[in-house]
């Protein structure tokens, strides 16, 4: 019995180490013409969800070389997601509001 339980635990560990099984979700909220949080630390394979909880349009834009991205306009209540494909650090901005920023560090 103990031998079977130990084998099952090892199997679970291998499954987890294979990646993807425990990819995390990180939520960035847009409200009051600001991003929250302003810093996200994540892992490759994680998803960042941008939620417009504001009463005006926003648009996620990343100008950082190697990560540059445009998710397009988000109306109030809309949510858009992006899966982090590689390690590095990039800045998330809003096309319409230059003061809205979040730094994402991907390990």
């Amino acid at each position: 019995m103990v031998r079977v339980q130990f084998a099952a635990l090892c199997g679970a560990f291998v499954f987890a180490s294979g990646g993807g099984a425990f990819a995390a979700d990180h939520v960035v909220t847009m409200k009051g013409a600001a991003h929250s949080p302003e810093m996200v630390t994540a892992a490759v394979g994680d998803t960042v969800r941008f939620v417009n909880d504001d009463d005006q349009n926003h648009a996620v834009f990343v100008p950082t070389a190697g990560f540059a991205l445009d998710l397009g306009k988000q109306e109030p209540g809309q949510e858009k997601s992006y899966v982090l494909g590689k390690a590095g650090t990039f800045t998330v901005e809003c096309v319409f509001h230059s003061n809205m920023m979040t730094t994402v560090e991907v390990k």
């Binding site: 100008p63 070389a65 540059a68 991205l69 445009d70 998710l71 397009g72 306009k73 992006y82």
Partner: peptide, 13 residues
Amino acid sequence: YLDVDHLDRKRVR
């Protein structure tokens, strides 16, 4: 100097 993935419009800029 840069390539931008425009996921919304399925384009590379």
